[in-house]
């Protein structure tokens, strides 16, 4: 109980720090007024121009000192009011944008992780059961290639092979298409994120499996007459999953970063492209909302990782 309270405290402190950092950086480095009003922001020559500036400042709380603005933004944010987008034409709520964009990015991330995990586990089992053989060494070299290949380069490569050389997957993502069509359209972006993740998982899981396979209880299982296959699946796999689960959480964070680039290459209007556009427009509320969302997701994933840990290991559950 005390442990979870500490975790909660740390998570809140983290969210607070990240929001301050983002808020501060955006306000100190950028000029929001210019983005709301355009060139009119510097037009102080006429009475009318000054009035427009004053109105805009009042509306967006730009007159007040930074800490006050931060508190105002923060207290609205925690009640679920993410504010409105900065734009000259209308003020659509930030929440609308997120509602529209989030499902696509979520779909991308889930598909990427599914690909990564479903590839990595059988691959690692296969490698570990023939550790240090020629095929195992070749597979380890392959993982190295995937890890060293930058995601944008991999994206270009996948696009070239799967869409241009062999016209398997479409190049265009259309949010209006039916679900399964969208899944099909999302395969290439998901592969771009998923293959390097699979390589990372495979390497880790393989090492842990090899360690586990040298444990005495594996010998016990074999001495009971359990088949090779079942020794791997029923006895060796579960005890080897711990660092895999940890890295799964960390990788999810990295994939969110990768999604920025991948959405750009494959032209997917997701959260990644939303934040890039928002930063370029200096649309502060949107940037803040997405950064907070991503950080919160990071925190939640790490909590889930802890929970899964205790699910797998009865020894953790006890303590």
């Amino acid at each position: 109980m005390r442990y979870w309270l500490q975790r909660l405290g740390a998570a809140l402190a983290l969210l607070l720090a990240v929001s301050m950092l983002t808020f501060g950086a955006m306000n100190l480095l950028g000029d929001p007024l210019f983005n709301i009003l355009g060139p009119a922001a510097s037009d102080t020559s006429t009475e009318e121009g000054r009035q427009i500036i004053a109105d805009a400042k009042a509306e967006y709380n730009l007159d007040e000192p930074l800490p006050v603005r931060y508190v105002k933004w923060g207290s609205a944010f925690v009640t679920g009011d993410f504010g409105v987008q900065f734009s000259v034409d209308g003020q659509p709520p930030v929440a609308d944008l997120i509602k529209e964009r989030l499902p696509r990015t979520l779909m991308l991330l889930i598909m990427a992780q599914l690909i990564a995990v479903t590839l990595a586990i059988p691959w690692a089992l296969w490698s570990a059961s023939r550790a240090d053989s020629v095929v195992d060494k070749m597979s380890t070299a392959t993982t190295f290639l995937f890890i060293a290949l930058p995601n944008f380069a991999l994206a270009v490569l996948i696009k070239y092979v799967l869409s241009i050389k062999f016209e398997i997957f479409p190049l265009i993502f259309n949010a209006a298409d039916p679900f399964w069509t969208r899944v099909w359209q999302m395969v290439m972006p998901a592969l771009t994120l998923g293959l390097p993740a699979a390589a990372v998982y495979q390497r880790l899981l393989r090492t842990d499996l090899i360690t586990t396979l040298q444990e005495d209880f594996i010998l016990t299982a074999r001495a009971k007459g359990v088949s090779r296959r079942n020794v791997l699946f029923k006895h060796a796999l579960r005890p080897s999953l711990f660092s895999f689960i940890t890295i799964f959480g960390i990788t999810t964070g990295a994939l969110i970063g990768g999604a920025l680039v991948v959405e750009q290459v494959f032209i997917i209007p997701g959260l990644g492209s939303a934040i890039v556009e928002a930063i370029l427009r200096e649309d502060f509320p949107v940037v803040l909302a997405i950064v907070m969302l991503v950080t919160a997701a990071f925190v939640v994933i790490n909590v889930i990782v802890d929970l899964v840990y205790s699910l797998i290991d009865p020894r953790v559950r006890a303590s």
Binding site: V18, L21, A25, G257, L260, I275, I279, V294, F298
Partner: peptide, 18 residues
């Protein structure tokens, strides 16, 4: 931890964009 917990690229574009 703060720096590691949100995608580095977001911070990078934040700074480079501004």
């Amino acid at each position: 931890v703060v720096f590691l917990s949100f995608p580095a690229l977001v911070l990078a574009i934040l700074i480079t964009a501004l």
